[in-house]
């Protein structure tokens, strides 16, 4: 059996920081540059209203020109690109401002914030993030459990191997965005609503990587190790408990990392048709009202949550492997 090698050289935190920081800075710089052509039309229109003379002067002429050409012809009039009210692409600092305003500022100073009302404001991303996180966790637990159970069945039963695996694969080829509203509607019609339908969509996305990873993991003990168990006349349950399950732990964590990120996506997709809070609802509301800054802020919270969740699984993995003696 192969156990994930832990001997590869990982640079220490201090050595890792400069390259990471460099990439982040480059991305931010690129973003600031991209904001100018993306918002050029809106910026020039506003400048025109304020009395500036634009080249070319009529909106009809400008319509068929590329954004870059407009930028090149009016270099002096684009200062407002980074501070538009409703930009097509908001600048990074606008997103950061919105993030602050809709988390800390809203909760501390807002009328319905936690400081003044005692409960989280339904206008804050903290509240919406927690709504999404709840569905993510429930869906992840359901999906991971289902995945492990199915994998155990598949490894032990040829019938299940032949029947379940193709369906599991087919299930993942259907776009979840198409399926999610149907799941919500069907569950609603049988009286299930609230957290559970979103969790079901999360579980739908997250069980698959766990099934695939665990089937591989449970089958990872080699012939010799299975023969050894056979010479002890060990039962199937004992082989599962003492050999297959411990051997599959590295595979389990690898698939849990994918599963938890998929759970988050599932929860967000599930929130689109429901519109009762959550980051997904927030993104959709932003797009209804042309609030790109709000969409981007919700996106960043979702990305940060995903990073946090994957990191947490990684930490649990390191702990578990160290405990099992499989990592130094």
């Amino acid at each position: 059996m192969s156990v994930a090698s832990t001997t590869s050289v990982t640079p220490r935190r201090g050595q890792r920081l400069p390259p990471v920081l460099g990439v982040v800075l480059a991305l931010i710089a690129l973003w600031y540059v991209a904001v100018v052509p993306m918002n050029a039309r809106e910026t020039l229109t506003q400048a025109e209203r304020a009395g500036a003379i634009i080249d070319p002067p009529t909106a009809v002429d400008r319509r068929d020109m590329s954004s870059w050409a407009l930028v090149a012809r009016n270099p002096g009039l684009l200062g407002a690109s980074w501070s538009l009210d409703r930009p097509r692409l908001p600048a990074p600092h606008q997103v950061v401002t919105e993030l602050y305003a809709s988390t800390i500022d809203e909760e501390i100073n807002g009328r319905s914030g936690i400081v003044q009302s005692g409960t989280l404001s339904n206008r804050s991303l903290v509240y919406h993030g927690l709504v999404t996180l709840n569905a993510t966790f429930l869906g992840f637990v359901i999906g991971a459990t289902l995945g492990v159970v199915l994998a155990i069945g598949i490894v032990h039963s040829r019938v299940m191997d032949m029947s379940v695996m193709p369906w599991a694969i087919v299930s993942q080829t259907i776009p979840i965005v198409a399926l999610a509203p149907m799941i919500i509607v069907v569950l609603y019609s049988v009286g299930v609503q609230g957290l559970l339908p979103k969790a079901v969509i999360s579980a739908y996305l997250s069980f698959f990587p766990v099934v695939v990873g665990m089937v591989k993991g449970l089958r990872s003990p080699d012939r010799m190790q299975l023969d050894l168990m056979h010479t002890y006349n060990a039962s199937k349950a004992r082989v599962l408990w003492a050999l297959r399950l411990p051997a599959s732990v590295p595979y389990l964590f690898a698939s849990l990392k994918i599963a938890i990120a998929a759970s988050l996506v599932g929860a967000i997709v599930g929130e689109l048709p429901v519109q009762k809070g959550g980051l997904g609802a927030r993104m959709l509301a932003g797009s209804y009202y042309g609030q790109t800054v709000q969409i981007w802020a919700a996106l960043f919270v979702a990305a940060a949550l995903a990073a946090l969740l994957v990191w947490a699984i990684g930490a649990a993995e390191r702990r578990a492997l160290r405990r099992m003696g499989m990592a130094p």
């Binding site: 059996m1 156990v3 010799m224 190790q225 023969d227 050894l228 168990m229 010479t231 002890y232 006349n233 060990a234 004992r238 003492a242 050999l243 411990p246 051997a247 732990v249 099992m324 003696g325 499989m326």
Partner: peptide, 27 residues
């Protein structure tokens, strides 16, 4: 019988003591 294979085949997640105890646990 006890069977010794070409490779030691010890379980990496068990200490030496618990590896030796494996058949005893099963039995």
């Amino acid at each position: 019988y006890g069977y010794v294979f070409q490779a030691a085949g010890l379980y990496p997640w068990r200490t030496i003591g618990r590896n030796v105890a494996l058949p005893l646990e099963i039995m």
